[in-house]
Write a protein that binds this DNA or RNA. Structure first.
Lengths: 210, 210
DNA sequence: TAGATTGTTAATCGATTAACAATC
DNA sequence: TAGATTGTTAATCGATTAACAATC
């Protein structure tokens, strides 16, 4: 329905808006102006208004924005009003950690299963959920209406699994493997390259010294 | 020594260059042109040359770039020739996972210690390293020449710890808490907001459907 | 109504891409 | 030398900021 595409720069800022609005809501603040919000968030008021107006007019002239309303609207834009079924592929430390991390479930991200290739790990239970063999991957995705696969496996394995996922109903891949995936355009990939992030920090630390 | 500031957009791309050059090196490729690299990485050759020339002329006209040399140079720019001492604050699932993740050590990031507040956890061992009490934080940082603190604790605790870290010799914070930290400018903060990332994926999935 | 603040258009700034002269 | 490809300047594109008319 939308005509022009909204830039990823804007999308990236939405969760941050949501976070600050959540805090305001918790503080019992009912209304906020772009000016006030801008000084809290250390961005320009202009940017806030521009960003929001990509999705419609959420404010009232002369008044500002209703915190709760805006919070809900941004939530909807980000799809937080829907639930998403996830599986984790890779029951190593990181997969384990994400699986145990409950806060995602509050947001409608439901972990339905966890997979591994290692026979020593398959069959064990994490949080009452059994670690499954990768053999049943496709079947499980279909039967459990899985939308998102989280990849916490080494890079070579990730390429192979991404290939298999491409032929399923999966809509998105949350990729923690240190490699770029090549998947059809109907599958969205969101990368979390931890080592890239750490290298960036390293750069900035060394720069800061000069 | 450098006069103009290099943009964070450029810095963010460096680890990706390093990754691709590493692959090329492994494949035994000795030289590569910006054109060839651009088609592999799906960026423009212009961008590659512009990015690299922020740091100096690493190529040879008519020839291209020596893979190994360029790999080493980018590594140096990112500080991969130095070692960094890290501590992890928060021995929960995520802290645990990062602590166990060996690949960082290959890059010169040495995990020196892990901290928690929970008395049930303090004293236990992870990889032969004892989980320490937050009480000895400052002392430990000084005695072990710690450069980077990794924050894998809930947001309120993170604010408090960041405050304490501000008064130490710490140069950087790798922040996994879902909150923006306020620290003096001599401390660099690199955020990994996992829930923000997942929300972005959620947006793109729902958008993709239209 | 007067004051405040949005929504939106216009101006600026920065980043990306294109072009080409320099040179290996 | 001729060909190839860099380093770098110039052009374009997009994103951010400023300004202000619309309006609550």
């Amino acid at each position: 329905m939308e005509t022009r595409e909204i830039s990823q720069a804007v999308i990236s800022r939405l969760p941050r808006y949501l976070r600050y609005l959540g805090e305001l809501k918790d503080e019992g603040v009912e209304r906020i102006s772009s000016q006030e919000l801008s000084s809290r968030m250390k961005v320009t008021a202009s940017q806030i208004r521009q960003d929001l107006n990509n999705f419609g007019g959420f404010g009232q002239q002369g008044y500002g924005y209703k915190v709760e309303f805006l919070y809900d609207e941004i939530g909807k834009i980000l799809g937080m009003d829907k639930t998403h079924n996830l599986i984790i592929i890779g029951a190593g430390n990181l997969g384990h950690a994400l699986f145990n991390y409950m806060n995602f479930e509050r947001r409608g991200f439901i972990f339905k299963g966890i997979f591994d290739v290692n026979p020593d790990v398959i069959g064990r239970s994490i949080k009452d959920v059994e670690v499954l063999s990768l053999d049943c991957l496709e079947e499980f995705i279909t039967e459990n209406d899985i939308d998102i696969a989280v990849l916490t496996i080494p890079k070579t394995a990730a390429l192979n699994v991404a290939e298999r996922l491409s032929k399923t109903r999966i809509k998105g891949i949350w990729n923690f493997a240190h490699i770029d995936l090549n998947v059809p355009s109907h599958i969205q990939v969101e990368n979390v390259h931890l080592s890239d992030s750490l290298m960036k920090l390293s750069y900035n630390i060394n720069r800061g010294e000069e």
